[in-house]
């Protein structure tokens, strides 16, 4: 996979405050990279430097091989930015908003019209394309906000907390859009303070706090840092003692015990073990009526690496 973004040693100070103190990471084509941290952790300042809005005091940003700075023009064409605050004109229609920003990215004529229509379809606003956006609901505005960012087919899409203040239905639509874009090969940098969004969307996650990256890796790698295990809760009857003994012998299972409802199993990579586990305990005389898998989450990781809860 080609490297789309390379950020190294980014530092940004505001007076005496160091908002970002040496942040660095890279993102490959088709990869969704999450920047997870509480408000004020330095997420927005980091992406402002990556998008060329802010000049770093130190460090370097390279997108598709082109160095990015506030004065660079060429490299910015490869970036699509979806700011945290709505960045649309309320007295323009959805089509006019998209067309205006499309023209700033050098699109014109039929190519622009066609792409605007495509994006309206993707964000589900085709029916409302000619309405002034001031008449839109919050969710519709958010979707248009994202649509503008991906209009020019950027190599790197930066989404800064795109679901803040969004209703659950629109939120789900936004997350599905991001999954779809990533599947198409777009590199996505996604900042959020919602742990479940980072877990759902991101191939890799960096936990950022107080302007520095505290940990980085895949979800599994991060969870492994805190020694977490998947918990499999099996609602069952029958020969539970024999079933527990059989489960113990399966490779990857750390602990198996009986419970009031059936069995509890602690294991690594539960989703991979599950077919074998269920097959063997059923063969041992256990009658299974329900299964639930609970994996250790990034909340625990965040607590481990920062010493505080994510929503503090």
């Amino acid at each position: 996979m080609a490297n789309v973004l390379s950020a190294t040693g980014l530092v940004r100070r505001f007076g005496d405050l160091t908002a970002v103190g040496g942040v660095g990471f890279s993102i490959e084509e088709g990869e969704t990279f999450g920047l997870l941290g509480p408000n004020g952790a330095g997420k927005t300042t980091s992406i402002s430097m990556i998008a060329g809005l802010l000049e770093p005091d130190a460090g370097e940003v390279v997108v598709v091989g082109i160095p990015i700075s506030p004065n660079s023009v060429d490299g910015k064409a490869a970036i699509g930015l979806v700011p945290q605050d709505l960045a649309i004109y309320p007295d323009l229609t959805a089509t006019e908003n998209l067309a205006f920003f499309g023209r700033l990215y050098g699109m014109k004529g039929e190519q622009l019209s066609k792409r605007v229509a495509e994006v309206l379809e993707v964000i589900g606003l085709t029916d409302r394309h000619d309405d002034l956006t001031r008449e839109f609901s919050g969710g519709m505005k958010r979707r248009l906000n994202i649509g503008i960012g991906l209009l020019h087919r950027p190599k790197l899409l930066i989404l800064d907390e795109p679901t803040v203040g969004v209703d659950p239905q629109s939120r789900n639509a936004i997350l599905e859009s991001v999954e779809s874009l990533s599947a198409e090969g777009m590199a996505v940098l996604y900042t959020t303070h919602y742990m479940e969004e980072a877990e759902r969307l991101c191939d890799r996650v960096a936990i950022i706090d107080e302007g520095t990256i505290k940990a980085e890796g895949t979800r599994r790698e991060l969870v492994a840092m805190v020694g977490g295990r998947d918990r499999i809760t099996i609602t069952a009857t029958g020969d539970l003692a024999r079933g527990t003994a059989v489960a113990h012998d399966i490779s990857g299972v750390f602990e198996a015990s009986q419970s009031d409802e059936g069995m509890e199993v602690l294991a690594n990579e539960a989703s991979r073990l599950l077919p074998e586990l269920l097959s063997k305990i059923a063969g041992a005389g256990v009658v299974i009526s329900g299964v639930e898998v609970v994996e250790p989450n990034l909340e625990a990781v965040f607590l481990h690496v920062t010493g505080k809860a994510l929503r503090d």
């Binding site: 910015k76 700011p83 709505l86 960045a87 649309i88």
Partner: peptide, 15 residues
């Protein structure tokens, strides 16, 4: 104030 400045500055145009 309305946040659109960030989008303008992120576009491939001179400041």
């Amino acid at each position: 104030r309305d946040g659109t400045m960030a989008r303008l500055l992120a576009a491939p145009i001179r400041r």
